[in-house]
Design a protein around this nucleic acid. Structure first.
Lengths: 221, 221
DNA sequence: ATCATTGATATGCTTTGCTATATCATTGTT
DNA sequence: AACAATGATATAGCAAAGCATATCAATGAT
């Protein structure tokens, strides 16, 4: 519709894409129907403030009213805080897999392999030349994502209800899944080693800690 | 309702107050009914994006989605750009009178006295100790505001329709009004002289920074 | 004491966001 | 070829925004 409206919508859309979230995934996070998200992103509706804030929150964005004259400075700061303006395919792929890992963590909490995986992917994100390994990233991501769609038993893994249910009586992971996870872990470590080897003077990763709900730390790169 | 919602609403409310705009004045600017603005400000409604942007635009605010990670920096920048956290009564009074001057300018365009008045008030805003002259400011403001409510002939001065109508066949100002305007001009100049005299080493163009309450005075000539 | 301004509310009415549930065409994967 | 994921669309119904118009109490100005 209006010019400023489209700007906001585009930001939402871009942030979602950068995080590797599908409309359905975002829908499950926010409780907003996918059909509605589609309508919003195509500019076909005049979204309400509560919905906007809900979407923004799920995308780690904060809605701010900034004085017009401060806008250039604010834009500059935002650009400075967020390394690259638009997410690279590699970053999108990383975030997408990170999301899958998060979903798996909801089903299998306290699984050290998942923690290692998440740690490894976070480390990968700090490496500048990760874009050169897009193929390998997609490969690993594919394997990990494959674990969450095993039949319909995990079909609704994204919904908060199922999450809490899963957290209660912890499911036991199939042996082959565990094996796949361990394979992924070593693949990630392998990949990282190769990348670090390429750029030996890379400073040690400034991300010491990670949180369980660390998706909030993902930046659209 | 939600925290973030209230934050936005409070900003709108504060910006309006800082500009010395009544709900009705803002209503005329935006086309949004005063009753609705009241409901919005009291948190009783889930405003739509288009309305929010419309209100923001009228208050010289811009709606931004900023990455959570960048929020502290953005807040800092905004705070740094806006020296006055909350508008002082003197600034509010100044903006309120500036608004009245703008309305009069819509009725009497090309009236040099109005231009002088606006310039004078603009200059006053740059003086740090203007707060000491609140009484005088109110006095002058009262006189100026008195000119816009002469009967109902100017009752709807705020609406865009009436503004454009007025711009077409330029009304001629009553003699006593012109005289009042000239009196106000010299009063403002007098006031500014006294203030400048009080602080002789005021740096020439302080132009320190922008203010939240600083109306975009440049737009309507 | 009269009158204008302000913000809060109310009412009737229309529009539209939002939900819930599906379907569909594309695309990519096995 | 079979299958899953994606985004776009559709329908029906409910709730709420939004508009227009008024009224009212409190405040302040003349």
């Amino acid at each position: 519709m209006i010019y400023a409206t489209q700007d906001i919508i585009d930001t939402l859309k871009g942030a979602r894409a950068a995080k590797g979230l599908s409309q359905r995934a975002l829908s499950k996070r926010t409780g907003i129907p996918q059909s509605h998200i589609s309508k919003i992103e195509s500019g076909g509706t005049d979204i309400r403030l509560s919905s906007l804030i809900e979407l923004a929150r799920a995308l780690d964005l904060d809605l701010k009213l900034v004085p017009r004259k401060a806008v250039p400075a604010v834009d500059s700061v935002v650009r400075g805080t967020v390394p690259t303006v638009s997410a690279t395919p590699a970053i999108r792929e990383l975030n997408r897999t990170l999301e899958a890992i998060r979903n798996l963590s909801a089903v299998y909490p306290n699984l050290s392999e998942l923690k290692q995986l998440r740690d490894g992917f976070h480390a990968l994100k700090t490496l500048r030349d990760v874009g050169q390994k897009l193929g390998a990233l997609r490969d690993i991501g594919k394997r990990i994502r494959g674990l969450q769609q095993t039949g319909s038993n995990l079909a609704k893994w994204g919904s908060p209800i199922e999450q809490s249910k899963a957290a209660h009586h912890e499911a036991n992971i199939p042996a082959e899944h565990l094996q796949a996870l361990r394979g992924a872990v070593s693949a990630v470590q392998n990949l990282r080693n190769r990348l670090v080897h390429t750029q030996p003077w890379q400073p040690s990763p400034p991300r010491p800690a990670y949180r369980l709900d660390d998706v909030g730390e993902d930046e659209d790169g």
